[in-house]
Design a protein around this nucleic acid. Structure first.
Lengths: 157, 157
DNA sequence: CTAACTGCAAATTCTTTGCATACTC
DNA sequence: GAGTATGCAAAGAATTTGCAGTTAG
């Protein structure tokens, strides 16, 4: 996933500030720092890793604030949350990325991304049949990757 | 999801017993009771609900045993686990059900099921492109249902 | 100024683990 | 009878909450 340009990053920031204003919430350092950290991360970061990453930098932000800000970022659609089978949620930037899906290795938990336009079609058809207004989807494919450095590979046939 | 016939139920039971024997594990009352409870449930039951359901019946089985048995049922492919966005995992019978996917209401958390053969195609193509051996998939569509008794419906446009 | 935000630690929720007792093989 | 499975309660992991102090508007 390619990094955003400075212009795009600024737009993300503006959107978040606008969202906060619209909700009557304050623009705080902490909130912007969390936003930047997620957009700087390679992708698929969990709340605690984010917390430790910020702790190591000059910004020290409590877990409570990290979670609080994540919640705001989800509400503003600038970040999406994923639950890849385990209990720990992962977050990634959503802005300006085309909607993509995930391929998860059951052995090494490596995550790959792919994109297939047919899912859009399925989504539209299902929405129609079930009279359901679909906001988003998550397609996760679980299996075994063939990477040479895949760990925990089981002997199971 | 239609209920299984007595014959099918017996086959499920036999499969589980065979699985236990193969692993050198014991056939205990508790394990069979948990298996039955999941297959009797309407579907999409979580561990704690299962625990309380069993508690109310004559069978009193501890949470530890519920979780232990769920793990064995997952290993034996008789039950599948789902993570629908929240932290609480849900379980459902897998045997003799065609693979299906889920439509989840963001307001009332009602879950509907659907099935689309195109997902199979996508799965095969992605497996090919990424040299990945796919074992299973989960496609979740999140949105707003139109049921009259849908609760928590937000005013958001 | 003042209400909202933050940090801290304690509380909650879901799941796993350790250990004495009970039961399968 | 030997040793695994169970129940209980306590531990653990992820996330949330309450409250006193801090800060944006």
């Amino acid at each position: 996933m390619s990094r955003l340009s400075p212009d795009q990053r600024e737009e993300v920031r503006d959107r978040f500030l606008a969202f906060l204003k619209r909700r009557g919430l304050r623009q705080t350092q902490a909130r912007l720092v969390v936003l930047d950290a997620i957009y700087d991360a390679k992708g698929h970061i969990d709340a605690d890793t984010l917390y430790f990453q910020l702790k190591q930098q000059k910004h020290s932000i409590s877990r409570a604030t990290v979670y609080n800000t994540l919640s705001l970022l989800l509400d503003s659609d600038l970040v999406v949350r994923h639950q890849f089978g385990n209990s720990q949620a992962k977050y990634e930037p959503s802005f300006r990325f085309w909607q993509h899906d995930h391929l998860i290795c059951l052995d090494c938990h490596h995550i790959m991304e792919f994109c297939d336009p047919r899912i859009q079609k399925i989504q539209e058809m299902v929405a129609d049949i079930y009279t359901f207004e679909i906001k988003r989807h998550a397609l996760n494919l679980y299996g075994h990757c063939q990477r040479v450095d895949c760990t925990n590979r089981s002997a199971a046939a």
